[in-house]
Design a binder for these strands. Sequence first.
DNA 1: TCAGATACGACAGCCATGTTGACATATTCC
DNA 2: GGAATATGTCAACATGGCTGTCGTATCTGA
Lengths: 180, 180
Amino acid sequence: MESIQLGDAPASKRSPGEELDPAPMYDIIELLFFAYRDFVGDADRLLQNYKFGRAHHRVLHFVNRQPGLKIAEILAILQITKQSLGRVLRELLESGYIEVRPGPVDRRQRLLFPTGKGRRLALDLARLQSKRFARVFEALPPGAYDQAIQFLLEMIDPQERDEIAERLRLNSLSPERQRA
Amino acid sequence: MESIQLGDAPASKRSPGEELDPAPMYDIIELLFFAYRDFVGDADRLLQNYKFGRAHHRVLHFVNRQPGLKIAEILAILQITKQSLGRVLRELLESGYIEVRPGPVDRRQRLLFPTGKGRRLALDLARLQSKRFARVFEALPPGAYDQAIQFLLEMIDPQERDEIAERLRLNSLSPERQRA
DNA sequence: TCAGATACGACAGCCATGTTGACATATTCC
DNA sequence: GGAATATGTCAACATGGCTGTCGTATCTGA
C-alpha cells in the first residue's frame, strides 16, 4: 500500500524535550471521528431491518459476549442509567433476542442471556464489523493488528483499561462460559 | 511499556489462504468502542461549561479548521440534514462563536467563520483531545503515530477516504487560509 | 427475627440530536 | 424571464440519553 504522508508529526517529535503549548493534533482527531462514524455505520444499516438502534446493539453485543451478565454489570459497562437501559432491554426481551433467568445464588439478580435468535443477530453484526477490520489489516503491513490493539488500549482511561483488558482476556480464554 | 497480549490474532493470520467464516474480531470491536467513548468524553466535559453538546463541537471544529466553509460543505462533511444543523448553528451564531459572511462571488452562499471566541474554544477542545493522544504516543514505541494514522485512514469508507486525506493535507500545508 | 441494605422495575417528564416533508426566499445561470 | 441553486423555516416525529421518585422482592447482619 502506498504510504500517505499526512500533515505534521506530533509536536513532541518536532522538538524533543520542549512541551510548551504543542500544536493540536487535528489530523488524528478528525480521522478517529470519521473512522468511528463509518465503523458504526455498518451495523446501523443492518439494524434498520430489525427496527433496532445502536442502543439495542450495544446491549445485545455485551450480553452475547458475557452471557449471564447482571443488570448492574451491563449498566457499568455501558455507563448508562437503568432507566435508559430499561426501554431498550424490554424491547430485546419482548422480541425474544435476550432472556432473563434469576440469579442462582441471589434471586434478586436478573441474569441476561442471549437466545438463539439473539446469538445469531449478534454474530451477524460482529461479522459485519469484522469485515471492515479484515479489509483494513489486509491493506496494512503485518503487525498492524497488534499495533492497533495497543493504540486503542492506550486511548482508554487508565481506570477502565485494566478491567477491560481483563474482560477481553477472559472472554478469549474461556469459551466454556458461553454455555453457562 | 509492558506488551499486553489480548485474545486471538485476526482469523486471516491463523490459517493463511482460508477465508471461510472467520471468527469475529470481538477484541478490537470493543476496544474501538471504549476508546472512542473516552476520547469524546474529554470534550463533552469541557462543553458542559458552555451548555454546548457534541453537535456544537463538531460544527465549531470544522468551521475553525476550514474557515469560509459553505453550509452545503459542512452538511456534506458531517453527513447531517440542514434541519439538524440549523438549531445548532443558530446557537453558535447567537452566542458569537461563529459568524457568517455572504459569498463574495455567489451571494446566496453563507460562508462560516469562527470568531475570536470561537477560535479560542475550538483550540481549547482540540488541545484537550490532543493531550490524550500525546499521552498515548508517549507510552507507545516510535512510529506508533504513523501506524495509527494509517490504521484510521484504512477504517474510513474508500469513497470519502481520498477526499478526507486531501482535506487534511490541504489544511496542514496552507495555514494562510486561516486568515481568509 | 427484624431492620436496613441491595437489586431491580416502573412511571413521569425532560433534553439533545437526529430525521422527513413541505414551503419560502434570494440569487444566479441560461 | 424561467429554472436551478443555496439556504432558511415550520412542523412533526424517533431515538437515546437524563433526573427524580416510588415500589417490591430479597438478602444480610446484629
